[in-house]
Lab assay of single mutants.
Amino acid sequence: MAEQVALSRTQVCGILREELFQGDAFHQSDTHIFIIMGASGDLAKKKIYPTIWWLFRDGLLPENTFIVGYARSRLTVADIRKQSEPFFKATPEEKLKLEDFFARNSYVAGQYDDAASYQRLNSHMNALHLGSQANRLFYLALPPTVYEAVTKNIHESCMSQIGWNRIIVEKPFGRDLQSSDRLSNHISSLFREDQIYRIDHYLGKEMVQNLMVLRFANRIFGPIWNRDNIACVILTFKEPFGTEGRGGYFDEFGIIRDVMQNHLLQMLCLVAMEKPASTNSDDVRDEKVKVLKCISEVQANNVVLGQYVGNPDGEGEATKGYLDDPTVPRGSTTATFAAVVLYVENERWDGVPFILRCGKALNERKAEVRLQFHDVAGDIFHQQCKRNELVIRVQPNEAVYTKMMTKKPGMFFNPEESELDLTYGNRYKNVKLPDAYERLILDVFCGSQMHFVRSDELREAWRIFTPLLHQIELEKPKPIPYIYGSRGPTEADELMKRVGFQYEGTYKWVNP
């Protein structure tokens, strides 16, 4: 592979701008107003304001973009700056750019259920340069409990009458099928589907988006991507930290609602779906819905739930269990780990287990898709061969690698495990991989909904998990304890083995 010439960040961002501006969906010269509902909250200060700053800094926003914060707290732009700027990672050389960014910011205080507050917000936006005809993007960085009041008031008082209007809704989209349907029906009564952007930030990850290209742009994968060759698929999300004093919020939802029903299920769809007619948003989402419709409700015998306990040999936070978090209700049975087996009941995947695993306070930070292939028929190497695996590593250190057998150097035919490896950090030294939120917010500006969740996708996802969630809430089974920093409950490994996964433990990928 030829040595790549190092590029400056300015040059890299210039390439990104060229890609972005050559499309006809990006209205570079139009006025846009980006409204952050819930501007005083954690999500706004840690993710949304920093993301908008990065896009502005790199010249990736339309030229005439204004940012308006809205929340109940009586704040000023200076207050917003004070709480969000520490997350910007701005350099001293960017000081003038930073001043320009905050000059485009404003803030309006108001209630979430008060019509007069929204009329005041609308008047404020109209007073901005060309504000009355601007395109408006409303980001709901809010708890779902206020979605209905907020969307109703936005629709009645704050819509642009000339430009387009788009609304970005953060997960969780309800707690179960019934609450999700209620919320979807409410929002759909106010906005068209092409105006609604239900954001799952995992769909903005580079390697998640790469799944489609790997599958449908490489001839070698087509013939082997089926039940005849693939023994099982494992989708993993692991965090090495616990709730760390923020367990009160987590306890309301648990690990299945927080990660599995959305992030992991979306990745499953991209692995299992048929080739779409095109890369058009609805063509892709149509195929994802077909996959979900082929999955039956989760069966309790295919589920393992766990909850982390303190590690007596650990240090600091590792010595504390979930129930030691003062914000967690006493005696909570909320799971911090889950392993679930699903089956896609169609011709391509009949009988292939899709194993979804996620948890907190585990032994490493990792998100990946792992396809394990069947054993080689007619073994001539005296059971020395391990199964081939194709691994798409989402985070950290984005990579695609194939675990395969090669001859060990020497005189004899002794096979050993090795890999074919594409590590993004080595291959793409001159490429700026956008943060997931950067990519998705740019998608909203461009009107691309491919990486957002459609209402029928959402409904099918909740259909699969709601009976299990209701059973857990009714019966309150005690989750299996696992030690902070471990791989999780051993019962999860036993479940995976029972459905056909072979864990060798003899080879570990190392970032080159």
Rank of each mutant, 00 (worst) to 15 (best):
residue 205 K to W: 00
residue 252 E to Q: 15
residue 83 Q to S: 14
residue 193 E to I: 03
residue 114 D to P: 07
residue 226 N to I: 05
residue 78 A to R: 13
residue 236 T to W: 00
residue 53 W to F: 06
residue 130 L to S: 15
residue 231 A to L: 04
residue 80 I to P: 01
residue 10 T to Q: 15
residue 55 L to F: 05
residue 169 V to G: 04
residue 56 F to N: 01
residue 240 P to A: 07
residue 191 F to H: 03
residue 149 A to I: 14
residue 109 A to T: 15
residue 78 A to M: 11
residue 64 N to D: 11
residue 17 R to T: 15
residue 48 I to A: 02
residue 185 N to Y: 13
residue 124 H to L: 08
residue 30 D to R: 14
residue 233 V to I: 13
residue 100 D to P: 02
residue 216 F to W: 06
residue 134 A to K: 10
residue 22 Q to D: 15
residue 155 H to W: 10
residue 51 T to K: 05
residue 105 N to Y: 08
residue 193 E to G: 00
residue 7 L to D: 15
residue 186 H to T: 09
residue 151 T to M: 12
residue 218 N to R: 04
residue 179 S to G: 08
residue 112 Y to W: 06
residue 56 F to Q: 04
residue 44 A to Y: 03
residue 141 A to E: 01
residue 12 V to L: 15
residue 244 E to G: 08
residue 165 N to V: 13
residue 212 M to L: 15
residue 206 E to K: 01
residue 132 S to I: 10
residue 192 R to W: 10
residue 248 G to Q: 06
residue 152 K to E: 13
residue 80 I to D: 00
residue 221 F to P: 03
residue 157 S to C: 14
residue 94 E to T: 06
residue 105 N to W: 11
residue 212 M to D: 02
residue 119 Q to W: 08
residue 121 L to T: 00
residue 138 F to E: 03
residue 173 F to K: 04
residue 204 G to N: 01
residue 229 N to Q: 13
residue 156 E to N: 14
residue 10 T to R: 15
residue 139 Y to R: 03
residue 106 S to N: 08
residue 62 P to Q: 05
residue 230 I to H: 04
residue 128 L to H: 13
residue 244 E to T: 10
residue 40 S to A: 00
residue 241 F to C: 06
residue 148 E to I: 10
residue 154 I to L: 14
residue 121 L to W: 01
residue 170 E to Q: 04
residue 61 L to M: 07
residue 130 L to F: 10
residue 54 W to C: 06
residue 42 D to P: 03
residue 208 V to Q: 00
residue 170 E to T: 05
residue 221 F to V: 08
residue 204 G to F: 00
residue 64 N to T: 08
residue 115 A to Y: 11
residue 80 I to V: 14
residue 79 D to A: 09
residue 71 A to S: 11
residue 246 R to P: 02
residue 67 I to S: 01
residue 224 I to E: 06
residue 217 A to T: 11
residue 226 N to D: 11
residue 11 Q to L: 10
residue 98 L to Q: 06
residue 130 L to A: 14
residue 108 V to K: 07
residue 231 A to D: 07
residue 152 K to M: 13
residue 176 D to C: 11
residue 29 S to G: 08
residue 137 L to E: 01
residue 200 D to C: 01
residue 195 Q to R: 04
residue 93 E to I: 10
residue 138 F to W: 15
residue 196 I to M: 09
residue 81 R to G: 05
residue 234 I to H: 15
residue 31 T to V: 14
residue 174 G to F: 01
residue 48 I to N: 00
residue 166 R to F: 01
residue 15 I to Q: 08
residue 147 Y to K: 03
residue 104 R to I: 13
residue 225 W to F: 11
residue 199 I to V: 06
residue 164 W to L: 10
residue 95 K to M: 15
residue 231 A to E: 10
residue 202 Y to P: 01
residue 89 K to F: 12
residue 167 I to P: 04
residue 163 G to W: 04
residue 81 R to T: 07
residue 19 E to G: 12
residue 121 L to I: 10
residue 11 Q to K: 15
residue 208 V to C: 14
residue 90 A to E: 05
residue 149 A to P: 14
residue 238 K to A: 06
residue 120 R to K: 13
residue 185 N to V: 08
residue 201 H to Y: 01
residue 254 G to S: 07
residue 118 Y to N: 06
residue 205 K to F: 02
residue 200 D to H: 02
residue 47 K to F: 04
residue 131 G to A: 13
residue 168 I to V: 08
residue 232 C to W: 01
residue 21 F to I: 15
residue 92 P to G: 11
residue 218 N to M: 04
residue 253 F to C: 08
residue 134 A to M: 13
residue 52 I to V: 14
residue 91 T to L: 12
residue 99 E to Q: 14
residue 223 P to H: 09
residue 53 W to L: 00
residue 228 D to P: 05
residue 34 F to Y: 09
residue 106 S to Q: 11
residue 169 V to W: 03
residue 19 E to C: 15
residue 145 T to V: 06
residue 88 F to E: 02
residue 206 E to A: 06
residue 27 H to A: 13
residue 78 A to C: 11
residue 93 E to V: 09
residue 18 E to F: 06
residue 24 D to C: 10
residue 26 F to I: 09
residue 127 A to S: 14
residue 238 K to M: 02
residue 255 I to H: 04
residue 189 S to K: 10
residue 60 L to H: 07
residue 195 Q to C: 11
residue 75 L to H: 13
residue 94 E to C: 09
residue 135 N to T: 07
residue 198 R to N: 00
residue 90 A to G: 08
residue 60 L to S: 03
residue 161 Q to L: 15
residue 227 R to C: 08
residue 169 V to D: 01
residue 11 Q to H: 15
residue 43 L to E: 01
residue 214 L to E: 01
residue 253 F to K: 01
residue 179 S to L: 04
residue 234 I to M: 14
residue 44 A to R: 04
residue 54 W to I: 10
residue 87 F to M: 09
residue 180 S to T: 04
residue 77 V to F: 14
residue 36 I to H: 01
residue 250 F to Y: 14
residue 117 S to V: 09
residue 195 Q to F: 04
residue 93 E to H: 14
residue 52 I to N: 02
residue 232 C to R: 00
residue 121 L to G: 02
residue 146 V to E: 06
residue 233 V to C: 09
residue 152 K to W: 09
residue 240 P to T: 12
residue 120 R to A: 13
residue 96 L to W: 11
residue 172 P to V: 00
residue 218 N to H: 03
residue 215 R to L: 04
residue 148 E to G: 10
residue 174 G to K: 02
residue 235 L to M: 15
residue 70 Y to N: 07
residue 68 V to M: 08
residue 167 I to T: 09
residue 215 R to F: 00
residue 217 A to Q: 06
residue 240 P to C: 09
residue 133 Q to R: 15
residue 216 F to M: 02
residue 86 P to W: 06
residue 220 I to T: 05
residue 159 M to D: 09
residue 80 I to E: 00
